[in-house]
Nucleic acid binder design. Structure first.
Length: 277
DNA sequence: GGCATTTGACCCGG
DNA sequence: CCGGGTCAAATGCC
C-alpha cells in the first residue's frame, strides 16, 4: 500500500514539475494567457493531490473536516462539488476521416449520461462523464456540442480533473503529440486521431476562490488506479493524459501541425452520412 | 449478464 | 417559470 502512495505522490510531483516547466515555456509566448491559467490550475491541482497524499499518510483517513452539516443527500454534495470544479473548453475541428463525436477521443474513456437540446443551438449537447466515476471517484465530465455554424467544429468543454488513470493504449491515448516536448513515453504516439486541428481553449474559471476541492478531494480521488502504474514504464500515463489537455490547449493560435491546418479536410462529407441523427 | 447509450423525467439555479 | 444539467429506467450491444 505504501508503495502505491509513494508512486502516486511521485507522480504528482513529477507532474507538477513538468507542468511548471510548461508554464515557464509559455511565459515567453505572449499570446496564450489562457493556457497559462490552465497550467497554473493543473499545477495547483497537482500540489493539492500531493499534499492530500501526504496528509493521508500522516493521519490515516484525513477525511473532510470542513464538511458542513451533512445530512444533505448525496446530490447536494455532488452539486456543490460540481459548482466548484474548474471548467475549460476547447473547440475541436474534426476532419473528414473522423466519424462522429464519439470519436473525439481525447485519451479518456467517457460514458454518455445525457443529451439535451440547447436553446438556440441547432444540435443537441452531449453530456459525458468519466467511465470510472464510480470505481475511482473520478469526477471529470465533459460536454460536447457541435457548433451550428460550422459542423466540423465541436465545442468540448471539460469540467473537473481526471483523478483516475485510465491508460488504455487501445483507446487512443495517444493524442496527437504536437509540437514541443516529445517525451514519447513508451509507444504512446499513435496517430489515430490526427484530426484535431485547430483547437481553441478557453478556461472559464468559475472557481471563485480557486480552492476547488481543497477541503475535500473526492474521497477516493487521491490514488490512481493500479493498472495505471502496473504497466511499468507507463507510470506517467496519468500525467500524459493530463498533458494531453494542455497540449491540445496550447496550440491555440496558429500553431502549425505536421499535417498542416490546410491539409485537413477540404471537404468533409458529414452531412451525407447522417451524422448525428 | 454486464456494460454503454438513449431518452424522458426530474432537479436546481437564475 | 424556463432552461441547463443530471438521473435512471429502458433498451441495445457484445
Amino acid at each position: 500500500m505504501e508503495e502505491w502512495e509513494q508512486k502516486c505522490l511521485i507522480n504528482e510531483l513529477l507532474q507538477g514539475r513538468e507542468l511548471a516547466m510548461q508554464l515557464q515555456a509559455h511565459l515567453n509566448l505572449p499570446s496564450c494567457n489562457e493556457t497559462r491559467e490552465l497550467l497554473l490550475q493543473q499545477i495547483q491541482a497537482s500540489y493539492d493531490k500531493a499534499l492530500s497524499l501526504l496528509h493521508y499518510k500522516a493521519t490515516g483517513t484525513s477525511d473532510t473536516i470542513d464538511q458542513p452539516p451533512q445530512s444533505l443527500p448525496v446530490r447536494d454534495a455532488a452539486t456543490v462539488q460540481r459548482k466548484s470544479l474548474p471548467r475549460w473548453t476547447h473547440q475541436v475541428r474534426v476532419g473528414p476521416g473522423t466519424a462522429m463525436e464519439g470519436n473525439l477521443n481525447d485519451g479518456f474513456s467517457w460514458r454518455k449520461y445525457g443529451q439535451k437540446d440547447i436553446l438556440g443551438a441547432k444540435y443537441p449537447r452531449g453530456y459525458y462523464r468519466c467511465t470510472h466515476r464510480n470505481v475511482q471517484g473520478c469526477l471529470a465530465t465533459k460536454q460536447v456540442q457541435r457548433s451550428d455554424g460550422d459542423p466540423t467544429i465541436f465545442d468540448v468543454s471539460y469540467r473537473g480533473r481526471h483523478t483516475c488513470s485510465n491508460n488504455n493504449q487501445e483507446q487512443g491515448t495517444g493524442t496527437i503529440e504536437p509540437y514541443q516536448q516529445q517525451q514519447h513515453i513508451g509507444n504512446q504516439t499513435c496517430p489515430l486521431f490526427p484530426n484535431y486541428l485547430s483547437l481553441n481553449i478557453k478556461v472559464e474559471n468559475d472557481v471563485g476562490d480557486g480552492n476547488y476541492e481543497t477541503g475535500n478531494l473526492s474521497p477516493t480521488s487521491t490514488c490512481p488506479n493500479p493498472t495505471g502504474v502496473m504497466n511499468n514504464g507507463s507510470t506517467s500515463v496519468a500525467i500524459e493524459s493530463e498533458f494531453t489537455e494542455i497540449i491540445q490547449a496550447a496550440p491555440t493560435v496558429g500553431l502549425e501541425f505536421p499535417f498542416g491546418n490546410a491539409g485537413l479536410d477540404p471537404n468533409f462529407t458529414f452531412d451525407d452520412n447522417g451524422f448525428f441523427s
